[in-house]
Design a binder for these strands. Structure first.
Length: 279
DNA sequence: ATGTCGCCTTAAAGGCGA
């Protein structure tokens, strides 16, 4: 890359098989540093590696038949030091989390990246809703143990939660799924461990959505939710230089119902290689 | 509008999940 800025992206692709051409087009056009994917809807063995390798990337995936599935696409030269498939210590039938600690050439500090597909929750008060809250609680506890006040961590994914009122179109029913007080409190507790919402660093008030229902021409009418997020840990908050939502892939033929959410950041000075004249 | 997708199934339309 011609400059030092990193571009990290999270994208719920709603079937990697169907959306592979979109992902490859996105890599070719935007040249992101790292992409976190959700809803692969295929088993790990069906995730292709060649088209990514050709473009200079490796892909680490955690899939299962039919539902869920997450992945991380990263530069070939990055070394995965530690890999977690699922929240450590939390029994879960669903492939919803892939966490990788990277060793990056020319950087002294390791970097954690997490691709997370939070449970949808279906309806407030349902069994799936209770599972959603338990899942978030387990993720929060594990992230806290990673020490986000000190370590460099990106938590990226489809949280299935619109954190604040302006993150949901006014037509979305109050206290329904994705916007309920219980979900927002669980999200706030996770964030409070030491994270900052990257998009809100750059756009504190703007109405930005990342998902629009396939039905009712919701995208054309901009009736959506902001449920896909990138959280940065405390040491990274001041490193964010830009962030936003890429609406363009949502206009492509046969799109995912989600748009990519991205952040650009510069490594903190203590992550960069020591200069030659330093001791 | 129960409005659309994607994936699954004793294959063809229907169920499930989102």
């Amino acid at each position: 890359m011609s400059c030092d800025a990193n571009r990290f992206v999270t994208w719920n692709v709603n079937s990697l098989k169907v959306r592979l051409p979109h992902v490859l087009r996105y890599l070719d056009e935007k040249r992101p540093t790292l992409v976190a994917l959700q809803e692969l809807k295929c088993v790990t063995e069906q995730v292709p590696t060649e088209p990514f390798a050709e473009r200079g990337y490796q892909i680490l995936a955690f899939g299962q038949p039919t539902y869920n599935g997450v992945a991380l696409i990263a530069p070939n030269e990055w070394q995965a030091q530690e890999v977690h498939r699922g929240i450590p210590g939390f029994a879960d039938d669903a492939a919803r989390l892939l966490a990788v600690e990277w060793r990056i050439p020319a950087q002294t500090r390791p970097l954690w990246t997490v691709s997370a597909y939070f449970p949808n929750g279906q309806a407030v008060g349902s069994e799936k809703f209770a599972y959603k809250l338990r899942w978030i609680e387990a993720l929060t506890a594990w992230l806290a143990a990673l020490d986000p006040q000190r370590q460099a961590i990106f938590v990226m994914g489809d949280a299935n939660i619109a954190p604040e009122a302006r993150d949901a179109h006014p037509s979305w029913p109050e206290e329904s799924i994705h916007v309920s007080s219980a979900e927002r409190a669980a999200w706030a507790e996770l964030v409070a461990q030491g994270f900052t919402d990257a998009v809100r660093i750059c756009h504190p008030e703007e109405v930005l959505y990342s998902w629009w229902d396939y039905r009712q021409g919701a995208f054309r009418r901009n009736i959506g939710l902001r449920i896909d997020h990138i959280l940065v840990s405390a040491p990274l908050a001041r490193c964010v230089i830009a962030a936003g939502v890429d609406r363009e892939p949502r206009t492509w033929q046969r799109p995912s119902d989600h748009a990519p959410v991205w952040v650009e950041w510069l490594p903190p000075t203590n992550m960069a290689t020591q200069s030659s004249n330093s001791v």
